[in-house]
Measured scan of single mutants.
Amino acid sequence: LAALHAEGPLAGLPVTRSDARVLIFNEWEERKKSEPWLRLDMSDKAIFRRYPHLR
C-alpha cells in the first residue's frame, strides 16, 4: 500500500519516495501484461521525473 496526500494541491500523489516506488511498481506490473518489453525503473531520477514534488 502507498500513502497518498489526502487533500490540497498534492491530493492523490505519493507522500514519500517509497510510496512512489509502490505506485510505479503496481503500474508496471499491470502494463507488462500488454507491453512485456517494458523495463521497471524505480530510480530516484525516474521518481523525480514523475513526481517532482518529492525532490
Rank of each mutant, 00 (worst) to 15 (best):
F25G: 02
P52L: 02
L23V: 10
A20D: 00
E27W: 06
E29I: 15
S43W: 02
L10Y: 13
A46N: 10
R17E: 09
R21S: 06
L13C: 08
R50W: 03
L1M: 14
L10G: 03
V15W: 04
M42Y: 08
P36C: 07
K32L: 10
L4D: 04
S34C: 13
T16L: 04
K45G: 11
A11Y: 11
T16Q: 07
L4H: 05
G12D: 04
L13A: 03
R31T: 05
K32C: 10
A6P: 12
R50D: 02
L40W: 03
M42R: 05
A11S: 10
E27H: 06
I24N: 00
T16C: 09
N26W: 12
R31K: 12
R39V: 15
L54Y: 00
D41G: 02
V22M: 13
H5N: 06
I24K: 00
L10N: 09
R50L: 11
P14D: 01
K33R: 10
R31D: 03
E29G: 08
I47W: 01
P14E: 00
R17H: 09
R21W: 07
I24V: 07
P52T: 02
N26S: 11
N26G: 08
K33I: 13
R49H: 13
L40D: 00
P9Y: 10
D19Y: 04
A46V: 10
R17D: 07
L1A: 14
E29H: 14
T16K: 07
M42E: 06
A11R: 13
W28N: 01
D19W: 04
I47T: 02
F48W: 09
Y51N: 01
A20F: 06
A46F: 11
L10S: 06
R50E: 05
L23Q: 05
H53P: 00
S18P: 05
S18Y: 15
K33P: 07
R55T: 09
L54C: 02
A6D: 10
A11Q: 13
R39M: 14
A2W: 05
G8Y: 05
R31H: 07
E29T: 15
K33E: 10
G12L: 05
L23C: 07
W37P: 03
V22G: 03
F48Q: 06
R50N: 07
D44N: 13
R21G: 04
W28C: 02
S43R: 10
P14K: 01
S43V: 02
R39C: 15
G12F: 05
R17K: 15
G8C: 06
R39G: 08
A6H: 12
N26A: 14
D19K: 02
A11G: 07
R17Q: 10
H5P: 03
W28F: 10
A6C: 12
Y51M: 00
R55E: 09
F25Q: 07
L13H: 04
H5D: 04
E7H: 12
R55M: 12
M42I: 14
W28Y: 11
H53Q: 01
